[in-house]
Amino acid sequence: MCAGNRRSEMTKVKPVKGLNWGAAAIGTATWTGVPIRDILLLAGVNEDEVDKPKHIQFEGLDCDITGKMYGASIPIWKALERRGDVILAYEMNGVPIPRDHGFPIRVIVPGVVGARNVKWLGKIIVSDKESDSHWQQNDYKGFSPSTDWDTVDFSKSPAIQELPVISAICQPINGSTVKVEDDMITVKGYAWSGGGQKIVRVDVTANCGRTWHVAEFDHQDTALPPVHWAWTLWSVKIPVDERTKNVEIWAKAVDSSYNTQPEGFENIWNLRGVLSNAYHKVKVTLKH
């Protein structure tokens, strides 16, 4: 699972280094596997370790051009937490994990940035330190908008773990023509928040925030215990003026800790484009 990298919109503020994933860098699937908590306890890891600054390192079987294996780590409390739901997965959506998704075994750390969900798992290490891999130490970290590639010091920022609240408009798509019915248009999308936070509201506007409309939830994770790892799917009908030809639709989500999305990217811009969770906005033409 990977979210928070809406770089295509951040590059409208100023360039970032990375892929322009847009709103498509996150997905929901059904995973089947073995709880890593059970494996660690069988291996003799004491639950009292959660009170110590220890980490669980994961090492994949894939490597970069230098021959260094892909690696990442999570705090040990996350791995041992009963409701953390960290698993070593061997099935995705009821079938063996496809090769591109990490066959035969990958780590699933729900609510956490995809970079820690190591594919093609080859090794698990209990350590006093984080993984020393490039992707843990020198990538997937957030910085001030004033930080550039001449001044960045990756040692000064913690590795991203849990992700911020986010939403995306899936229908209509940007640049499309939308048919108006009974002076209304239909908007659909998803919302999600890191750490298992529940989405409690999605607000949508088609007039730059002068009027907001609260979306209905079409599907939401209701599994027990009360953690919400999957997308919340939402929809809403919004009234539009018959004289209006073009509108920009905005969406923002609110989670159970009342975290919400910032309006724009200017104040959260960072050189890698990560954690970019500002309002999702799409421009459409109306067909009356």
Rank of each mutant, 00 (worst) to 15 (best):
R7S: 05
V13D: 01
G22H: 08
G22W: 07
G22D: 08
I26E: 15
T28M: 14
P35E: 12
L40A: 04
L42H: 08
L42C: 10
V45K: 04
P53I: 14
K54C: 13
Q57W: 09
E59W: 00
M69D: 00
Y70H: 13
I76G: 00
L80S: 03
G84N: 09
D85S: 13
I97T: 12
H101Y: 12
G102D: 07
F103A: 13
N117I: 03
L121E: 06
I124K: 09
H134V: 09
Q136V: 01
K141H: 05
K141Y: 04
T151I: 05
P158R: 07
P158N: 08
E162A: 13
E162G: 08
P164C: 00
I166W: 09
A168Y: 01
S176V: 02
K179R: 14
V180Y: 02
D183E: 09
M184G: 00
V187Y: 00
K188I: 10
A191L: 06
A191Q: 05
Q197C: 11
A215C: 10
D218K: 02
T222F: 07
P225W: 15
V227N: 08
A230F: 01
V240T: 07
T244F: 08
K245H: 08
E248K: 10
A251V: 06
K252L: 13
V254H: 06
T260S: 15
L271I: 11
L271M: 10
K281V: 15
V282H: 05
V284K: 00
V284G: 00
K287F: 02
